[in-house]
């Protein structure tokens, strides 16, 4: 028997090796989880560049009467450049223009404008909003979400990413 074999039985050596094993494993695990966790959490720190889609002349939208518009957005989506179709509800009033995300804030169904009652109605769970996007009745937890909109040279532009309403 070599002298080391006595060491095998020694509880001190065993404890030392066990702590070496766990310390080294923890260090390797920590080292390698940095890039992996970093990669997966990347979207939390990335900001999307502002792109605007032209919806046409502001004047063409009737006052206080919501109009649904479809618009094409050409934008970078990660590695792809997508040219997708989106839609929005545009409401022009004396105060300015508001552009609503066409999905109900309850569970995301597409709502429509009900002209006789002057309300937005959601067909899924009977959510009702007024022309300003405020909840009148039903389950929606908050007013309609909006798209950021701005006017440039008489044309109405919207950013295709909705802003969550308060």
């Amino acid at each position: 028997m070599s002298p080391e074999s006595d060491g095998v039985a020694s509880p001190d050596r065993r404890r030392l090796l066990a702590s070496v094993f766990w310390a080294v494993s923890a260090a390797i695990g920590a080292l390698l989880s940095v890039p992996i966790v970093g990669f997966l959490t990347g979207p939390l720190f990335r900001r999307q560049a502002r792109v605007g889609a032209n919806l046409g002349a502001v004047e063409s939208f009737p006052l206080n009467l919501p109009r649904r518009v479809d618009f094409a957005v050409r934008q970078r989506d990660g590695w792809a450049i997508t040219a997708g179709l989106k839609s929005a509800w545009v409401v022009r009033s004396e105060q300015g223009v508001r552009v609503f995300d066409p999905r109900c804030t309850h569970l995301g169904c597409a709502y429509h404008w009900h002209a006789t009652t002057s309300r937005f109605l959601c067909p899924c769970h009977n959510g009702v909003y007024d022309v300003e996007g405020r909840v009148v009745s039903g389950p929606p937890p908050r007013p309609l979400d909006t798209f950021e909109a701005w006017i440039d040279g008489g044309s109405l532009y919207v950013s295709p990413t909705p802003v969550r309403s308060a």
Partner: peptide, 26 residues
């Protein structure tokens, strides 16, 4: 019987070499 237990003796040895490989790889 004359050998060493897998944990922690062998595993500590493995971990030491793996640590070296991990550092080189990184």
């Amino acid at each position: 019987e004359a050998g060493e237990p897998f944990y922690p003796h062998t595993l500590a040895k493995d971990a030491a070499v793996i640590a070296l490989v991990a550092v080189v790889l990184a």
